[in-house]
Computed example of a mutant assay.
Amino acid sequence: MRAVAVTRYGAPEVLDVVELPVPTPGPGCLRIKTYAAAVNPADVMLRLGQLDPYLGALEGPYVPGMEVSGLVDEAPAESGFTRGDPVMAFVDPFTPHGGAQAEYVVVPLAHVVAVPDGLDLVAAAGLPMNALTAHQCLALLDLPAGATLAVTGATGALGGFTAQLAHHRGLTVIAAGDDADHDLLRALGVDVVVPRSGGIEAYRRAVPGGVDALVDAAVLGGAALGAVRDGGQMVRCRPAEPATERDITVHTASVLEYGPRREALGELAALAGAGHLTPRTAAVLDPADAWRAHRDLEKGGLRGRQLITFTTDGK
């Protein structure tokens, strides 16, 4: 089977398309015939050699990708799935089975849910990992309805899902954007749009006492604490040295350590099917063009997911 692979560390152009054996699902797993796999910042970090601690004793080449959509190819009878069922899944690339960017992907049953009617099978690949991370961020904060939540990077995938999910749960969402982003942010459920040019101070002008909590999807780090009230909360979305002030509780979201994946994925799939979560696709690329996705992701400014598609049947 074809797979996008990191055979050596370096610039986007080091990515290769290689032939690998079709993986065999073991107990408690199923195999998916891939329609699409999303490109994430973690893929860039893997390509740059920044994730060696997670790779452990795994041997290369390393297949990146943490979310996939496609059709069930092989599943145990007790799974509830049959061959040909449309599904999407969270994929842990730091296992012997590798990541999502391959023609066939093996995943634990606990990481797979059906794609609901009304959700495009290719676009569904842009949902699992970022939506799960958004779900985890809100679980860590455990805010009551009506609380104020700032979301940095709300025009991006993680920030957008966080805003939509928070809006659905009755939170008041504040996010920054340029003039051209206002319609998008409003559609994502943002209640108060502040000017991106105003920096963190713009959040304080909108909520003078500080927001109850902040999800730092843009990875601003300690600077984002300035938007949060004394005794509030913040979720950082990448590992970093802990830093806090004014009795603010700082959580770290790590989707690899988030336990209730199938339950959460089921909830997220239902919300997507009902239109409350909307995967946004910026580009659909062939495996040979994966390097372009890495290049554009590093440039920043994307307003949707980049998907690598392996299907040839026009769907």
Rank of each mutant, 00 (worst) to 15 (best):
L15N: 01
C29D: 09
G304D: 03
L285M: 12
D216R: 12
L30T: 10
A269M: 06
T7R: 07
T172D: 02
L55Q: 13
N40R: 03
H111F: 14
V22A: 14
Q50K: 14
R186K: 08
V44M: 04
P239R: 14
L225D: 09
V4A: 09
D120Q: 05
C29G: 03
E103M: 06
L302F: 03
A187Y: 00
A157E: 05
L149F: 13
Y35N: 11
G84C: 10
L214T: 12
V151S: 02
D216F: 06
G198Y: 05
I32C: 08
G198H: 03
T152G: 03
T278E: 13
L109S: 02
A253Q: 09
G199E: 05
A139N: 12
G189S: 04
Q136K: 10
D212Q: 11
A274T: 09
H294G: 06
D52I: 08
A157L: 13
D16Q: 15
D289P: 04
R8V: 08
M1L: 13
R2H: 07
D296Q: 13
L184R: 13
A264N: 04
V151M: 01
Y62H: 14
H251Q: 06
P53S: 08
A124E: 10
A147K: 12
D92P: 10
E19V: 12
M88Q: 05
L158Q: 07
G210F: 12
C137S: 14
E78G: 09
R8D: 09
F94I: 10
T244S: 15
A253L: 13
D230P: 08
D313Q: 00
E19L: 10
A243H: 14
H97N: 14
M234W: 05
G160Y: 00
A240P: 02
Y9M: 11
A243C: 09
A131H: 12
D212A: 11
V39G: 01
L214R: 08
T24L: 13
R262A: 06
A139H: 14
T162D: 01
H97P: 04
T133Q: 04
D52E: 15
L158C: 06
A293W: 00
V112C: 14
A139G: 13
R229V: 11
P12K: 05
L109K: 10
C137H: 07
Y62C: 12
P12R: 09
D247N: 14
L149Y: 09
D52G: 08
A123M: 06
D92V: 09
T249K: 11
V192Y: 04
D230Q: 14
R205E: 15
H111M: 06
